[in-house]
Design a protein around this nucleic acid. Structure first.
Lengths: 216, 216
DNA sequence: CGGAGCTTTGAATGTATTCAAACGCCGTGG
DNA sequence: CCACGGCGTTTGAATACATTCAAAGCTCCG
């Protein structure tokens, strides 16, 4: 069990991975950087997500994991983890499934930054993240807590913070979202999905917005 | 065992996955499309690659797999595959590792389309693909077969075919590549890696003795 | 020889970036 | 209590990178 302050790294690029983590509380992100400092957030990690950084691959890891809010994580060491996998194949299978869902989301992100316009891109990120939060019971009707800064959204969408700001204004003006401080509201999810060219299949969420434990 | 002609789909979006495939011969790609037809290639599949389309996830699949050249694939059905995994945990582990490497590459693609300029992006795609070909013995010194069209490269990099064309010309002019018909030559891999801001860690290739220019 | 598919070229346009500065909010310290 | 500073957001103008549209050229194959 570990606690990390907001804006600090849980894992830095270049370290060797020794743990698999469960995110208990807070938001984090996986990111990659280029030599000159350009940074891409490649996924958001939300409460309930299980993640690691190239655990089975050994070698140096190629990306970092940073806390967006203060977070608490539970960690399990490599040997214990391996033992667990062997002792309980059902867990192994569930973890594998979780990773495959994460991979599916990753492909969608590639599509997102590669093909969608700035407006669609942000819309899509909002929809996806809201639905993931909803699936773990962290939404409140049409609203949820929204910790990432516009700079974070810029890194996640491949845009600049300035342009993210302008697109968010447009989203507000068109009534698709309300975003006051850290409170996000999506008054008409169907409309936002349409603006985002959103198609839910890739998320592999349980059919009902009930409780699921999936992650990674 | 199945053979597919160039430019045809092996799996179409919306189908249900029933097989895991091994690509025996030729190039293929995984792609996703938006409702209005915009298309993103999310990965290239090269000989030796094992792939499927959401096999363990069930449900409808969210992407297609198309042949770039004529391909031959070996397929294994769901039940046989499950039996294999249970009978031979080492194979299961190796497959899991393979998927994790694919996921790592997918994250790099997100970085690629999100942060790199058009020139860097193409350079990176060329380096990555060449190294993957090299790792399965499909290169010939500094050269390899290069089947994808400029339209394919456009779909893979999130650029237009016109702009891909201009960037390829620039790559040729600067001496970083030679590309005549289907023959690609990279005379100075280290230089191309530098232009691409390439960093090899994410590929998790087995170290090969006698290769020039590790990483960058 | 003809045609289809791919590549190349040019000019005009547009989306997103860059740079710079001001604003607002909030916690801290004087 | 108010001033200060930091951080995140907002604004504007100029610029740059990539797109769009249109057409011509090339190459391979039937």
């Amino acid at each position: 069990m570990r606690a990390i302050a907001a804006r600090r790294d849980l894992i830095r690029e270049g370290e060797s991975p020794h743990f698999v983590y469960l995110l208990l509380d807070g938001w984090a992100c996986r990111y990659k950087t280029l030599a000159d400092g350009r940074r891409q957030i490649v996924s958001f990690l939300l409460p309930g997500d299980i993640f690691d950084a190239g655990f089975l691959l050994l070698g140096k890891i190629d990306h970092g994991i940073a806390a967006i809010t203060p977070i608490r994580v539970g960690g399990i060491g490599r040997d214990d983890f391996e033992a667990l996998l062997e002792a309980c194949p059902k867990i192994a299978k569930a973890l594998w499934r979780g990773e495959r869902i994460a991979a599916s989301i990753q492909r969608e992100w590639t599509l997102n930054v590669g093909q969608r316009t700035a407006f669609e891109r942000l819309s899509h990120l909002l929809v996806e993240t809201f639905l993931r939060l909803e699936s773990v019971g962290l939404t409140n009707g049409q609203s949820c807590d929204w910790p990432p800064t516009q700079a974070d959204l810029a890194d996640a969408t491949g845009l600049t913070a300035v342009h993210v700001n302008r697109m968010l204004q447009e989203l507000r003006r068109s009534g698709l979202i309300a975003l006051n401080g850290r409170a996000l509201t999506i008054p008409d999810m169907a409309a936002l999905k349409q603006a985002a060219l959103f198609s839910a299949a890739y998320l592999h969420l349980a059919p009902r917005p009930g409780r699921t434990g999936e992650g990674a």
